[in-house]
Computed example of a mutant assay.
Amino acid sequence: MIKPWIFEFMQAPTPNEGEALRGAITAAFNGCYAFWLEAERLGFEGIFFSEHHFSHSLSPSPNLLIAAISRHTTRLRLGTMGNVVPLYEPWRIIEELTMLDHLTNGRLEIGFAAGVPQELQRIGLGMEEARERFNEALEILDAALVNPVVSHSGKYWKFENLSLMPGVFLQPSPPKWTTVVSTGSAQKSAQRRSKICTGFESVSRISEIFDVYRGECDRLGLPAGPDQLAIRRNISISRDAAQAREEAGVAKAATLKVIAGDPRAIDRASSLLDAPRTGAGFSVHDDDYIAGTPVQVTEQVINQCRKCGAGHFLAMLGRSMSPRRRESLALFGEEVIPQMRRAQISR
């Protein structure tokens, strides 16, 4: 079975002035809200919200979105992919997550991310310091997920017997995810007993990343099956295959604009977790853009998941303000999801 998720980027409306911009932002939030409620009706597994800052996205605080939608849904799993750890006090992250697990009635998925270099640089946070903060904060976060009373002495945080509230998760062990773009970060995620999600790259490159993760899990005696692995893809779906392909081209152009200035994408420089190891960056491959009729999209989704062994599929279904987005959601939910849930992933 392949579990279908929504990956919510929440693209911001085109900058404008005064009331026009205010109205566009309100309309974007209202449209997304209706979209998420429909996703539950259509049988999606859940929603992963992204976190981005300063441009492009209306989701600088995804935990607020989880809290808002949680009170109006009953089945959807809700999480971030992921909270940008270097921007926060780690104890604060845990306190919010424990609140959210109770607010969602135990439907929370926990996701951590190192952040996008160009966003971190806007506030003067260089890649080296961000990497150090991320690694140190993960030690605190992983400890706090097990015991709500934590002690730590490191470069950036020092505290003793810090009691975090509400203190306990509703779920005995909430699922934990990390976004990765390299084999090194995949290996470290396995050591932390975290599931992983990746995108952008070709299926063959993702298979390499997943193979390293599986190898490290095998070494540690941990589960490493399809339920530990997720891929994120852009989906353009229509009854008209040509229209879908055209929309995929627009989506790719938008992606390239968003990641412009990311050194990992441009010259395959080291990722935040792997610097200064060479070859740790990522590329944007055509495999990231799945387009066509419902039958064609179904075939591509299942084929990619089978090749790399992913048991979770995160779908980016059109731009937040697109008038065709609800149509795409319906086509994917009604015609693709039933086939995904019947598909067998053997790796």
Score class of each variant (00 low, 15 high):
residue 157 W to D: 05
residue 271 S to F: 06
residue 23 G to C: 03
residue 242 A to Q: 12
residue 58 L to C: 04
residue 19 E to P: 03
residue 156 Y to N: 09
residue 264 R to H: 05
residue 340 M to Q: 13
residue 136 E to T: 11
residue 64 L to E: 00
residue 271 S to Y: 01
residue 187 Q to L: 11
residue 125 L to W: 04
residue 16 N to P: 00
residue 217 C to T: 03
residue 168 V to N: 14
residue 272 L to N: 10
residue 122 R to N: 10
residue 336 V to I: 13
residue 220 L to F: 07
residue 338 P to M: 02
residue 336 V to Q: 11
residue 105 N to K: 14
residue 3 K to D: 02
residue 134 F to Q: 01
residue 229 L to R: 08
residue 193 R to F: 05
residue 28 A to K: 11
residue 34 A to R: 15
residue 63 N to F: 00
residue 61 S to G: 03
residue 34 A to T: 10
residue 289 Y to T: 10
residue 38 E to G: 00
residue 102 H to P: 05
residue 271 S to W: 01
residue 202 S to E: 08
residue 304 Q to S: 15
residue 154 G to I: 10
residue 84 V to K: 04
residue 311 G to C: 11
residue 121 Q to P: 00
residue 266 I to D: 03
residue 326 R to C: 01
residue 246 E to V: 03
residue 275 A to S: 13
residue 24 A to T: 03
residue 159 F to N: 07
residue 346 S to P: 00
residue 128 E to A: 14
residue 8 E to I: 00
residue 336 V to K: 09
residue 86 P to E: 01
residue 246 E to H: 13
residue 115 G to F: 04
residue 139 E to N: 12
residue 50 S to I: 10
residue 259 I to W: 14
residue 21 L to Q: 15
residue 239 R to C: 03
residue 191 Q to Y: 06
residue 308 C to N: 11
residue 125 L to S: 06
residue 248 A to I: 01
residue 159 F to M: 12
residue 73 T to I: 05
residue 311 G to Q: 06
residue 143 A to H: 11
residue 167 G to L: 03
residue 329 L to P: 09
residue 85 V to A: 04
residue 321 M to N: 14
residue 181 V to Q: 08
residue 20 A to D: 13
residue 175 P to W: 10
residue 325 R to T: 05
residue 255 T to C: 02
residue 225 G to V: 02
residue 292 G to V: 05
residue 33 Y to R: 13
residue 91 W to M: 14
residue 222 L to H: 12
residue 146 V to E: 15
residue 143 A to P: 09
residue 230 A to Q: 01
residue 1 M to H: 09
residue 159 F to A: 06
residue 191 Q to G: 08
residue 242 A to L: 08
residue 281 G to F: 05
residue 49 F to M: 06
residue 92 R to N: 07
residue 235 I to C: 07
residue 57 S to M: 02
residue 333 G to S: 08
residue 63 N to P: 00
residue 44 F to I: 01
residue 231 I to Q: 05
residue 73 T to K: 02
residue 7 F to S: 09
residue 56 H to M: 09
residue 180 V to C: 13
residue 259 I to A: 04
residue 29 F to S: 02
residue 341 R to K: 15
residue 267 D to S: 14
residue 201 E to A: 10
residue 118 Q to F: 05
residue 50 S to A: 15
residue 200 F to V: 07
residue 16 N to W: 09
residue 341 R to L: 12
residue 239 R to P: 02
residue 11 Q to R: 12
residue 41 R to V: 08
residue 293 T to D: 07
residue 318 G to W: 08
residue 246 E to C: 05
residue 307 K to L: 14
residue 295 V to C: 02
residue 73 T to H: 04
residue 338 P to W: 02
residue 30 N to G: 09
residue 138 L to W: 05
residue 347 R to K: 14
residue 144 A to C: 08
residue 203 V to D: 11
residue 167 G to R: 14
residue 93 I to F: 04
residue 341 R to D: 00
residue 91 W to Y: 01
residue 128 E to N: 08
residue 217 C to L: 07
residue 134 F to W: 05
residue 195 K to R: 15
residue 325 R to H: 03
residue 185 S to N: 07
residue 223 P to G: 06
residue 199 G to S: 14
residue 70 S to W: 01
residue 48 F to C: 04
residue 39 A to Q: 13
residue 133 R to I: 07
residue 104 T to S: 15
residue 120 L to T: 05
residue 291 A to Q: 07
